[in-house]
């Protein structure tokens, strides 16, 4: 036993130590404040969802899935034995149609504006124009609605007639009767102006992050500004633009007062965007809220819940898209 034998392996490896981080008092206080702030927004969101759900649970029990797919909204007449039928299908479709029209108009304008701001505009003027565009987002929506009704609509009707005259053979630009007032097209125009600031500012943000070495690589190969933008800026910014578009879509779908003023609500699904019949869940809630009875009120809450969830999904998708940009950007 003179030669030392090696001890069993287990005893040679010490157990992992527990690493204890002692935070100083001020740090703990700050953490507490920040964490509380973070949680408040979550809690508020959760409570709103809970409130809507609790108020509308009866509706879903009564009408089931038909509430979302149905096209009829009738509060019923108990005295004459007419049962109430509530369905927001047409409104939901209308919301999407109007928002998509708005987005289709807003997207090219926004991307063009963002490119102009980032790559064509003299630097001195860039800041002030950016500010003006951001200011557009601060205008109350009722102003947009009133402007849309009194100023834009007379012109827009003319544009709609032109579109119908020359492109009426495209199914969704056809109309069943020549009534062009308060159509999804006009509501979409107003919405497009409301979402241009948000889509522009997100696109511009993405464009400003295009790596300079790629831009220079393009120019060093004899690129003009436009070919450089096509080859470098747009591929880099594409998913960012998509993210911005989705955020704009979310905003457009939730828009209430402006749409209420310029859209004729109609409880049948209508895909003819130039025709004076459309839907909007948010505007419908405003319209019906004043004279709603017990059951109808619950129906409106349920409609709110559906809109809330749809908007949430869209925001979630847009977040995912924007995140993907920042990863592929490297």
């Amino acid at each position: 036993m003179s030669t030392p034998t090696s001890a069993p392996l287990q005893s040679e490896i010490p157990p992992a130590r527990e690493i204890i981080l002692t935070r100083r008092f001020s740090d703990r206080v700050f953490r507490g404040v920040v964490t509380a702030g973070g949680f408040v927004s979550l809690v508020v969101l959760g409570l709103i969802a809970l409130f809507l759900a609790s108020r509308s649970i009866d509706i879903f029990k009564t009408f089931g899935f038909h509430f979302i797919t149905g096209f009829k909204w009738d509060s019923g007449d108990p005295d004459n034995g007419i049962a109430p039928v509530l369905g927001i299908g047409a409104m939901l479709i209308g919301t999407i149609v109007t928002a998509v029209v708005g987005l289709v108009i807003a997207l090219p304008v926004s991307v063009g504006m963002a490119l102009f701001l980032e790559y064509y505009m003299p630097i001195r003027l860039k800041k002030s124009l950016t500010m003006v565009i951001d200011l557009m987002a601060a205008i109350p929506s009722v102003i947009f609605g009133l402007w849309g009704f009194f100023v834009l609509m007379p012109h827009a009707i003319y544009w709609a007639k032109l579109l119908h005259k020359y492109f009426g053979w495209i199914p969704f630009l056809d109309v069943q009767a020549p009534i062009f007032e308060r159509s999804p097209f006009i509501a979409g125009l107003v919405l497009s102006i409301m979402i241009i600031p948000i889509v522009t500012s997100i696109s511009r943000e993405v464009f400003s992050q295009v790596p300079l070495d790629r831009i220079q690589a393009a120019y060093a190969l004899g690129a003009t500004r436009w070919t450089m933008i096509k080859a470098v800026v747009l591929p880099f910014g594409s998913s960012g633009i998509a993210g911005g578009a989705m955020l704009g879509l979310g905003r457009a779908m939730g828009e209430t007062v402006a749409v209420y003023l310029v859209l004729n609500l109609y409880f049948q699904p209508n895909f003819q965007v130039l025709f004076s019949a459309g839907g909007s869940v948010a505007s419908m809630i405003v319209t019906k809220f004043g004279e709603a009875g017990q059951l109808e009120l619950q129906g409106l809450m349920a409609a709110g819940l559906v809109l809330f969830i749809v908007t949430l999904i869209i925001n979630f998708l847009s977040n995912m898209i924007v995140k993907r940009t920042s990863r592929t950007g490297n």
């Binding site: 070495d213 790629r214 690589a217 060093a220 190969l221 080859a231 591929p235 880099f236």
Partner: peptide, 13 residues
């Protein structure tokens, strides 16, 4: 033509 310090191929291509 020019070749830069950091290799800068276009990543989308």
């Amino acid at each position: 033509g020019m070749v830069f310090q950091k290799p800068n191929p276009f990543p989308s291509m």
